[in-house]
Design a protein around this nucleic acid. Structure first.
Lengths: 153, 153
DNA sequence: TGGTCACGCTTGAACATTCAAGCGTGACCT
DNA sequence: AGGTCACGCTTGAATGTTCAAGCGTGACCA
Protein backbone atom coordinates (compact mmCIF):
# COMPACT_ATOMS: atom_id res chain seq x y z
CA UNK A 1 0.00 0.00 0.00
CA UNK A 2 2.06 2.92 1.29
CA UNK A 3 0.47 5.67 -0.73
CA UNK A 4 -3.23 4.84 -1.08
CA UNK A 5 -4.69 5.16 -4.52
CA UNK A 6 -6.36 8.49 -4.05
CA UNK A 7 -3.59 10.42 -5.70
CA UNK A 8 -2.98 9.89 -9.39
CA UNK A 9 0.50 9.01 -10.58
CA UNK A 10 1.23 12.57 -11.58
CA UNK A 11 -0.16 13.98 -8.40
CA UNK A 12 1.83 11.57 -6.33
CA UNK A 13 5.06 12.37 -8.13
CA UNK A 14 4.47 16.07 -7.76
CA UNK A 15 3.57 15.72 -4.11
CA UNK A 16 6.65 13.65 -3.38
CA UNK A 17 8.89 16.12 -5.11
CA UNK A 18 7.31 18.99 -3.29
CA UNK A 19 7.51 17.22 0.04
CA UNK A 20 11.18 16.71 -0.53
CA UNK A 21 11.52 20.41 -1.21
CA UNK A 22 9.54 21.15 1.94
CA UNK A 23 12.21 19.25 3.85
CA UNK A 24 15.30 20.23 2.01
CA UNK A 25 15.02 23.92 1.30
CA UNK A 26 14.52 25.01 4.91
CA UNK A 27 17.20 22.58 5.99
CA UNK A 28 19.66 23.98 3.48
CA UNK A 29 18.99 27.55 4.52
CA UNK A 30 19.20 26.65 8.20
CA UNK A 31 22.47 24.95 7.76
CA UNK A 32 23.96 28.01 6.08
CA UNK A 33 22.65 30.29 8.81
CA UNK A 34 23.82 27.95 11.50
CA UNK A 35 27.27 27.66 10.06
CA UNK A 36 27.78 31.32 9.23
CA UNK A 37 25.94 32.95 12.09
CA UNK A 38 24.93 30.36 14.68
CA UNK A 39 21.30 31.24 14.14
CA UNK A 40 18.38 28.99 13.39
CA UNK A 41 16.03 29.95 10.61
CA UNK A 42 13.44 31.08 13.06
CA UNK A 43 15.87 33.01 15.22
CA UNK A 44 16.99 34.88 12.15
CA UNK A 45 13.46 35.86 11.28
CA UNK A 46 12.67 36.89 14.81
CA UNK A 47 15.59 39.29 14.70
CA UNK A 48 14.63 40.39 11.18
CA UNK A 49 11.06 41.13 12.15
CA UNK A 50 12.19 43.14 15.12
CA UNK A 51 14.54 45.14 12.96
CA UNK A 52 11.58 45.94 10.71
CA UNK A 53 9.71 47.62 13.50
CA UNK A 54 9.88 51.38 14.11
CA UNK A 55 11.72 51.14 17.41
CA UNK A 56 13.09 47.67 16.87
CA UNK A 57 10.57 46.49 19.38
CA UNK A 58 7.42 44.45 19.28
CA UNK A 59 4.95 42.69 21.49
CA UNK A 60 5.95 39.09 22.00
CA UNK A 61 2.58 37.73 21.04
CA UNK A 62 2.59 39.65 17.75
CA UNK A 63 6.07 38.41 17.08
CA UNK A 64 4.87 34.89 17.65
CA UNK A 65 2.24 35.29 14.96
CA UNK A 66 4.69 36.77 12.47
CA UNK A 67 7.31 34.18 13.18
CA UNK A 68 4.73 31.47 12.98
CA UNK A 69 5.59 29.94 16.29
CA UNK A 70 4.07 29.07 19.60
CA UNK A 71 4.36 31.50 22.43
CA UNK A 72 6.17 29.06 24.64
CA UNK A 73 8.79 28.28 22.07
CA UNK A 74 9.30 31.96 21.41
CA UNK A 75 9.63 32.69 25.10
CA UNK A 76 12.36 30.09 25.50
CA UNK A 77 13.99 31.39 22.35
CA UNK A 78 14.01 34.94 23.60
CA UNK A 79 15.67 33.71 26.77
CA UNK A 80 18.50 32.36 24.68
CA UNK A 81 18.74 35.45 22.50
CA UNK A 82 18.74 37.52 25.66
CA UNK A 83 21.64 35.52 27.02
CA UNK A 84 23.51 36.24 23.82
CA UNK A 85 22.75 39.92 24.21
CA UNK A 86 20.77 40.28 20.99
CA UNK A 87 17.41 41.03 22.52
CA UNK A 88 15.95 42.27 25.75
CA UNK A 89 12.49 42.39 27.28
CA UNK A 90 10.50 45.27 28.62
CA UNK A 91 6.95 45.49 29.86
CA UNK A 92 4.77 47.39 27.42
CA UNK A 93 4.53 50.92 28.90
CA UNK A 94 0.91 51.23 27.80
CA UNK A 95 -0.29 47.93 29.14
CA UNK A 96 1.57 45.94 31.74
CA UNK A 97 0.02 42.74 30.51
CA UNK A 98 2.08 42.78 27.38
CA UNK A 99 5.80 42.30 27.07
CA UNK A 100 7.90 43.76 24.34
CA UNK A 101 10.94 42.19 22.83
CA UNK A 102 13.55 44.74 21.83
CA UNK A 103 16.44 44.26 19.47
CA UNK A 104 19.65 45.51 21.08
CA UNK A 105 22.38 47.34 19.21
CA UNK A 106 24.45 44.20 19.32
CA UNK A 107 21.56 42.18 17.98
CA UNK A 108 21.02 44.60 15.14
CA UNK A 109 24.69 44.55 14.25
CA UNK A 110 24.73 40.79 14.36
CA UNK A 111 21.74 40.58 12.06
CA UNK A 112 23.20 43.14 9.69
CA UNK A 113 26.25 40.97 9.44
CA UNK A 114 24.32 37.75 8.90
CA UNK A 115 21.76 39.06 6.43
CA UNK A 116 23.78 39.46 3.24
CA UNK A 117 25.03 35.90 3.29
CA UNK A 118 21.59 34.59 4.04
CA UNK A 119 19.94 36.57 1.27
CA UNK A 120 22.63 35.49 -1.13
CA UNK A 121 21.82 31.92 -0.28
CA UNK A 122 18.12 32.44 -0.82
CA UNK A 123 18.90 33.91 -4.21
CA UNK A 124 21.30 31.12 -5.10
CA UNK A 125 19.17 28.23 -4.06
CA UNK A 126 15.77 29.51 -4.92
CA UNK A 127 15.09 32.82 -6.58
CA UNK A 128 17.71 32.51 -9.29
CA UNK A 129 16.57 29.01 -10.16
CA UNK A 130 12.96 29.92 -10.79
CA UNK A 131 11.58 32.00 -13.64
CA UNK A 132 9.55 35.09 -12.80
CA UNK A 133 6.52 33.33 -14.15
CA UNK A 134 7.08 30.27 -12.00
CA UNK A 135 7.58 32.52 -9.01
CA UNK A 136 4.24 34.17 -9.66
CA UNK A 137 2.56 30.81 -9.88
CA UNK A 138 4.21 29.70 -6.69
CA UNK A 139 3.07 32.85 -4.98
CA UNK A 140 -0.49 32.18 -6.07
CA UNK A 141 -0.29 28.57 -4.92
CA UNK A 142 1.09 29.61 -1.54
CA UNK A 143 -1.72 32.07 -0.99
CA UNK A 144 -4.39 29.60 -1.94
CA UNK A 145 -3.07 26.78 0.17
CA UNK A 146 -2.45 29.05 3.12
CA UNK A 147 -5.99 30.33 2.88
CA UNK A 148 -7.20 26.75 2.86
CA UNK A 149 -5.12 25.92 5.89
CA UNK A 150 -6.34 28.93 7.88
CA UNK A 151 -9.88 28.23 6.85
CA UNK A 152 -9.66 24.56 7.83
CA UNK A 153 -7.73 25.08 11.06
CA UNK B 1 17.21 47.03 6.88
CA UNK B 2 15.69 43.66 7.74
CA UNK B 3 15.27 42.32 4.23
CA UNK B 4 18.19 43.67 2.21
CA UNK B 5 17.37 45.12 -1.15
CA UNK B 6 18.54 42.25 -3.25
CA UNK B 7 15.07 40.87 -3.71
CA UNK B 8 12.61 42.92 -5.70
CA UNK B 9 9.24 43.72 -4.21
CA UNK B 10 7.55 40.94 -6.10
CA UNK B 11 10.24 38.47 -5.29
CA UNK B 12 10.12 39.37 -1.65
CA UNK B 13 6.36 39.01 -1.48
CA UNK B 14 6.49 35.65 -3.22
CA UNK B 15 9.32 34.44 -1.01
CA UNK B 16 7.53 35.49 2.14
CA UNK B 17 4.36 33.76 1.08
CA UNK B 18 6.23 30.66 0.16
CA UNK B 19 8.18 30.68 3.41
CA UNK B 20 4.94 30.83 5.26
CA UNK B 21 3.73 27.84 3.32
CA UNK B 22 6.99 26.06 4.09
CA UNK B 23 6.14 26.48 7.76
CA UNK B 24 2.45 25.97 7.75
CA UNK B 25 1.74 23.11 5.43
CA UNK B 26 4.00 20.58 7.16
CA UNK B 27 2.77 21.82 10.51
CA UNK B 28 -0.84 21.36 9.48
CA UNK B 29 -0.23 17.85 8.24
CA UNK B 30 1.77 16.95 11.31
CA UNK B 31 -0.92 18.15 13.59
CA UNK B 32 -3.51 16.00 11.87
CA UNK B 33 -1.25 12.94 12.00
CA UNK B 34 -0.38 13.61 15.60
CA UNK B 35 -3.95 14.00 16.61
CA UNK B 36 -5.36 11.08 14.66
CA UNK B 37 -2.49 8.63 14.90
CA UNK B 38 0.14 9.89 17.32
CA UNK B 39 2.69 9.91 14.55
CA UNK B 40 4.99 12.66 13.43
CA UNK B 41 5.23 13.43 9.76
CA UNK B 42 8.55 11.73 9.53
CA UNK B 43 7.49 8.69 11.49
CA UNK B 44 4.59 8.27 9.12
CA UNK B 45 6.86 8.35 6.11
CA UNK B 46 9.33 5.96 7.67
CA UNK B 47 6.53 3.46 8.11
CA UNK B 48 5.22 4.22 4.63
CA UNK B 49 8.57 3.68 3.00
CA UNK B 50 9.00 0.40 4.79
CA UNK B 51 5.59 -0.73 3.65
CA UNK B 52 6.65 0.03 0.08
CA UNK B 53 9.50 -2.43 0.23
CA UNK B 54 9.16 -6.03 -0.97
CA UNK B 55 9.51 -7.60 2.47
CA UNK B 56 8.59 -4.50 4.45
CA UNK B 57 12.23 -4.23 5.34
CA UNK B 58 15.03 -1.91 4.45
CA UNK B 59 18.54 -0.98 5.44
CA UNK B 60 18.51 1.78 8.00
CA UNK B 61 20.95 3.93 6.10
CA UNK B 62 18.84 3.73 2.91
CA UNK B 63 15.79 4.59 4.92
CA UNK B 64 17.60 7.61 6.28
CA UNK B 65 18.20 8.87 2.76
CA UNK B 66 14.60 8.31 1.69
CA UNK B 67 13.21 9.87 4.82
CA UNK B 68 15.60 12.73 4.49
CA UNK B 69 16.93 12.47 7.98
CA UNK B 70 20.16 11.96 9.85
CA UNK B 71 21.14 8.51 10.90
CA UNK B 72 21.21 9.38 14.54
CA UNK B 73 17.76 10.83 14.55
CA UNK B 74 16.44 7.82 12.68
CA UNK B 75 18.11 5.45 15.11
CA UNK B 76 16.44 7.14 18.07
CA UNK B 77 13.19 7.19 16.17
CA UNK B 78 13.36 3.49 15.44
CA UNK B 79 13.93 2.88 19.13
CA UNK B 80 10.66 4.59 19.84
CA UNK B 81 8.82 2.81 17.05
CA UNK B 82 10.27 -0.44 18.33
CA UNK B 83 8.93 0.26 21.79
CA UNK B 84 5.52 0.79 20.25
CA UNK B 85 5.84 -2.51 18.43
CA UNK B 86 5.62 -1.06 14.93
CA UNK B 87 9.12 -1.89 13.79
CA UNK B 88 11.92 -4.24 14.69
CA UNK B 89 15.60 -4.49 13.79
CA UNK B 90 17.57 -7.35 12.32
CA UNK B 91 21.13 -7.54 11.14
CA UNK B 92 21.31 -7.79 7.37
CA UNK B 93 21.81 -11.51 6.66
CA UNK B 94 24.15 -10.74 3.76
CA UNK B 95 26.34 -8.27 5.55
CA UNK B 96 26.56 -7.97 9.29
CA UNK B 97 27.57 -4.38 9.05
CA UNK B 98 24.13 -3.31 7.96
CA UNK B 99 20.99 -3.31 10.01
CA UNK B 100 17.54 -3.67 8.57
CA UNK B 101 14.43 -2.07 9.92
CA UNK B 102 11.37 -4.25 9.49
CA UNK B 103 7.77 -3.21 9.65
CA UNK B 104 5.84 -5.52 11.98
CA UNK B 105 2.32 -6.71 11.35
CA UNK B 106 1.12 -4.30 13.99
CA UNK B 107 3.04 -1.48 12.39
CA UNK B 108 1.57 -2.25 9.01
CA UNK B 109 -1.93 -2.37 10.42
CA UNK B 110 -1.38 0.89 12.25
CA UNK B 111 -0.15 2.57 9.09
CA UNK B 112 -3.05 1.17 7.07
CA UNK B 113 -5.37 2.72 9.59
CA UNK B 114 -3.62 6.09 9.58
CA UNK B 115 -3.10 6.44 5.86
CA UNK B 116 -6.58 7.23 4.58
CA UNK B 117 -7.06 10.14 6.92
CA UNK B 118 -3.64 11.49 6.14
CA UNK B 119 -4.14 11.24 2.41
CA UNK B 120 -7.51 12.86 2.71
CA UNK B 121 -5.87 15.74 4.48
CA UNK B 122 -3.22 16.08 1.81
CA UNK B 123 -5.96 16.21 -0.79
CA UNK B 124 -8.00 18.69 1.19
CA UNK B 125 -5.26 21.09 2.04
CA UNK B 126 -3.15 20.87 -1.02
CA UNK B 127 -3.99 18.80 -4.06
CA UNK B 128 -7.60 19.91 -4.34
CA UNK B 129 -6.64 23.55 -4.01
CA UNK B 130 -4.19 23.58 -6.85
CA UNK B 131 -4.95 23.24 -10.56
CA UNK B 132 -3.28 20.44 -12.50
CA UNK B 133 -1.28 23.05 -14.32
CA UNK B 134 -0.11 24.68 -11.14
CA UNK B 135 0.82 21.29 -9.79
CA UNK B 136 2.94 20.62 -12.85
CA UNK B 137 4.68 23.94 -12.42
CA UNK B 138 5.28 23.22 -8.77
CA UNK B 139 6.69 19.85 -9.63
CA UNK B 140 9.09 21.46 -12.05
CA UNK B 141 10.11 24.08 -9.52
CA UNK B 142 10.71 21.44 -6.88
CA UNK B 143 12.95 19.43 -9.15
CA UNK B 144 14.97 22.42 -10.19
CA UNK B 145 15.48 23.76 -6.71
CA UNK B 146 16.29 20.33 -5.33
CA UNK B 147 18.85 19.84 -8.05
CA UNK B 148 20.37 23.16 -7.12
CA UNK B 149 20.49 22.22 -3.47
CA UNK B 150 22.14 18.85 -4.10
CA UNK B 151 24.56 20.47 -6.48
CA UNK B 152 25.47 23.19 -4.01
CA UNK B 153 25.62 20.99 -0.93
C1' DT C 1 46.91 -14.21 10.24
C1' DG C 2 46.98 -9.89 11.84
C1' DG C 3 46.80 -4.80 11.37
C1' DT C 4 44.58 -0.90 9.80
C1' DC C 5 40.89 1.44 7.91
C1' DA C 6 36.26 2.98 6.36
C1' DC C 7 31.71 2.60 7.24
C1' DG C 8 27.04 1.70 9.45
C1' DC C 9 25.00 2.25 13.32
C1' DT C 10 24.32 3.34 18.29
C1' DT C 11 24.80 5.89 22.42
C1' DG C 12 24.55 9.55 25.89
C1' DA C 13 24.88 14.23 26.85
C1' DA C 14 23.67 18.86 25.37
C1' DC C 15 20.31 21.38 23.44
C1' DA C 16 15.58 22.69 21.62
C1' DT C 17 10.63 22.10 21.49
C1' DT C 18 6.21 20.77 23.27
C1' DC C 19 2.89 20.31 26.80
C1' DA C 20 0.37 21.45 30.85
C1' DA C 21 0.15 24.22 34.62
C1' DG C 22 0.59 28.63 36.85
C1' DC C 23 1.43 33.66 37.63
C1' DG C 24 0.32 38.51 37.08
C1' DT C 25 -2.25 42.20 34.91
C1' DG C 26 -6.05 44.58 33.51
C1' DA C 27 -11.20 44.36 32.07
C1' DC C 28 -15.58 43.86 33.60
C1' DC C 29 -19.23 43.49 36.84
C1' DT C 30 -21.38 44.22 41.52
C1' DA D 1 -13.53 48.33 46.56
C1' DG D 2 -13.62 43.53 45.71
C1' DG D 3 -14.43 39.34 42.95
C1' DT D 4 -14.06 37.02 38.85
C1' DC D 5 -12.43 36.32 34.43
C1' DA D 6 -9.70 36.30 30.10
C1' DC D 7 -5.42 36.86 28.38
C1' DG D 8 -0.23 37.30 27.76
C1' DC D 9 3.47 35.30 29.09
C1' DT D 10 6.57 32.18 31.71
C1' DT D 11 8.06 27.98 33.72
C1' DG D 12 9.60 23.18 34.39
C1' DA D 13 9.13 18.58 33.09
C1' DA D 14 8.66 15.38 29.27
C1' DT D 15 9.83 14.54 24.83
C1' DG D 16 12.53 14.88 20.60
C1' DT D 17 16.77 16.28 17.99
C1' DT D 18 21.62 17.25 17.35
C1' DC D 19 26.33 16.55 18.21
C1' DA D 20 30.48 14.08 19.14
C1' DA D 21 32.36 9.99 20.41
C1' DG D 22 32.59 5.03 20.25
C1' DC D 23 31.63 0.12 18.96
C1' DG D 24 31.57 -3.69 15.72
C1' DT D 25 31.95 -5.55 11.11
C1' DG D 26 34.03 -6.40 6.92
C1' DA D 27 37.49 -4.70 3.21
C1' DC D 28 42.05 -4.28 2.14
C1' DC D 29 46.82 -5.13 2.48
C1' DA D 30 51.13 -7.08 4.35
Amino acid sequence: MSEPQWLSGDQLAAWRGFMRLLQRLPAALESQLQQDSKLSFIEYYVLAHLSDQPEHRMRISELAVLANTELSRLSHMINRLEKRGFVRREPDPHNGRYTQAILTEAGFAYLADAAPRHVRHVLDLFIDVVTPDELRTLHRISDKVLARIEHAG
